[in-house]
Amino acid sequence: MSEREVARRMFAREFNDSNLQQGESMDRSPNFIVTPAGVICNRVFIVGVLTEVENIGVEGQTMYRARIADPTGVFTVYAGEYQPSAALFLASAKTPAYVAVVGKARVFNPEKGAYYMSVRPEEINIVDEYVRNRWVYVTALFTLQAVRIMERAMESGLRGSELERHMRAFTADSAGIARAMDHYQVSTGLMDAYRQMVMDALATIVDAAPPEKREAAGDGMALAIIEDMIKRLDRGDGVSYEALLDAAHRLGYEESAVEKTLNALMDAGRCYEPRIGILKLI
């Protein structure tokens, strides 16, 4: 019996932007999808607000359609007779409510050029606001990592099998990276849009997650966020400390946390000051 695939975290926008189905040539089930960031995905783990539930079954059939919103968009979830526990949950669910879902990613392609993404749930549970916020933080970190890996792929100048072989040293999604590059015509602009998507998603939960909780989420998250802020704000001459601090404040980071993170980036050789008060990535 084969092992279950790991459920991948991703925001609704990236999920709904996907329309590339896994092919036989990659030695995977056809049920896999490849996202624009190159993530190969069969199962997803999502957390958001259950905003709508509708019974769309006909002639006595059981089929519920639900919509679950995260800060970037909406996931569409279908549960029928083959997902009995999820269907039972949705039958009595009250909206709005925070929920966590693990399920199979599906692409419906009724006609050329038309693609509809959905999730077939294996499990749905009620969660609280803290769990939702925590999911947003961790999903942001995974998304930024995927964006960086895709940018590394673009910088390589390689394509196809050469790119796949090159990226094996950096990610288990090397085959997805290679296919996504060609299928989605991945550009710097798209990756910048995903980076901005992450920042916007984090900004929506600042009031619900005070800085002390944010710092408790782990130094890894702060490093990823501050590093990407520098990259996003740098127009070629570096970023002023004041501009970075202002952007960080909008996400709820105090100056002490920014200072600590900058010191860690400098100690790791990932950031430097070409001039006093100006920051630049290496």
Rank of each mutant, 00 (worst) to 15 (best):
Q22V: 14
E24A: 10
E24I: 04
S25F: 15
M26E: 15
M26G: 12
D27G: 03
R28P: 00
R28L: 15
P30I: 11
N31P: 07
F32P: 00
I33A: 02
V34M: 00
V34F: 01
T35F: 08
P36N: 13
P36S: 13
P36I: 04
I40R: 09
C41I: 10
C41E: 06
N42K: 15
N42M: 08
V49D: 12
V49F: 11
T51S: 07
V53W: 00
E54N: 05
N55D: 15
I56W: 00
G57R: 01
V58P: 00
V58F: 04
G60V: 08
T62P: 04
M63E: 07
R65T: 04
A66C: 01
A66E: 03
R67G: 00
I68R: 03
I68S: 01
A69T: 08
A69V: 12
D70H: 07
T72F: 03
G73H: 02
V74M: 11
F75G: 10
F75Y: 06
T76A: 12
T76H: 04
V77H: 02
Y78N: 03
E81N: 07
Y82F: 10
Q83K: 11
S85V: 13
S85A: 10
A86S: 14
A86E: 00
L88A: 07
L88R: 06
L88E: 14
L90E: 00
A93H: 03
K94C: 02
T95R: 02
P96K: 02
P96F: 12
A97I: 01
V101S: 06
G103C: 07
K104A: 09
K104W: 04
R106Q: 14
V107C: 03
P110R: 13
E111W: 15
K112L: 14
G113H: 09
G113D: 11
G113Y: 02
M117P: 05
S118Y: 09
E123L: 10
I126W: 06
V127S: 05
E129R: 05
R132V: 14
N133P: 03
R134F: 14
R134M: 13
W135P: 00
